[in-house]
């Protein structure tokens, strides 16, 4: 049974990578997140904003790669604030004076270091520079913009979704060979 049907619906839209939906979430959560971490995390306002952006990136990653899926065990807000708490703990090894506003999350969000993320991204960026324009296009549409095969076919003028899928796999293999 869905405990948070509105948030589940929102999560589905976010998972589809809809930019406007993410912006709307960003604008909506910014102030409450800042206040919460300035108030309970005793953070300077600038640091609270940095933490917010970091938490949003982690949320984004967990949503688009399918780690966070409906039905949600907490609201998206609670999940996002939970990520903030974990990030802050990792950073300062602090326990924070959280009160009961944000309960412990039933499913801990996966949080990786920014450095680790940068290295992984850099590897793929270099390979994409080498794989050729045609492959770069299809791989970017599929893996960076989250397009479905039908949309890729339309965008690149391919005859069908099957043709787009085949090109994607061919290009992925090329990338693999470049490793």
């Amino acid at each position: 049974m869905n405990k948070y049907p509105d948030d589940d619906r929102r999560l589905q839209k976010l998972a589809a990578g809809q930019g406007q939906e993410w912006k709307s979430l960003y604008d909506e959560m910014r102030s409450p997140f800042r206040l919460f971490f300035i108030k309970y995390g005793a953070m300077p306002p600038e640091a609270a904003l940095e933490l917010y952006q970091e938490a949003m990136v982690v949320l984004y990653r967990n949503v688009v790669n399918g780690k966070l899926q409906p039905p949600l065990a907490s609201t998206l807000k609670t999940y996002l604030f939970g990520i903030g708490k974990i990030l802050l703990k990792k950073k300062d090894n602090t326990t924070g004076d959280w009160g009961d506003d944000i309960p412990e999350l039933p499913v801990a969000p996966e949080v990786e270091s920014q450095q680790e993320q940068k290295a992984k991204a850099e590897l793929v960026r270099r390979l994409l520079d080498k794989v050729g324009e045609a492959c770069r296009q299809v791989l970017e549409l599929a893996f960076l913009k989250g397009y479905v095969m039908e949309a890729i076919a339309e965008e690149l003028g391919l005859p069908s979704a099957g043709a787009a899928r085949k090109r994607k796999h061919d290009c992925l293999k090329k990338l693999r060979e470049l490793l």
């Binding site: 990136v57 984004y60 790669n65 290295a119 992984k120």
Partner: peptide, 27 residues
């Protein structure tokens, strides 16, 4: 092979997150 592709997929995810970070900067 799976580990090689894992690097690629994780790289794509990380790159996508970086793009998101850029987008956030514009917001």
């Amino acid at each position: 092979e799976v580990e090689a592709y894992r690097q690629l997929f994780e790289g794509f995810h990380a790159l996508r997150s970086e793009n998101f970070r850029q987008e956030m900067k514009s917001w």
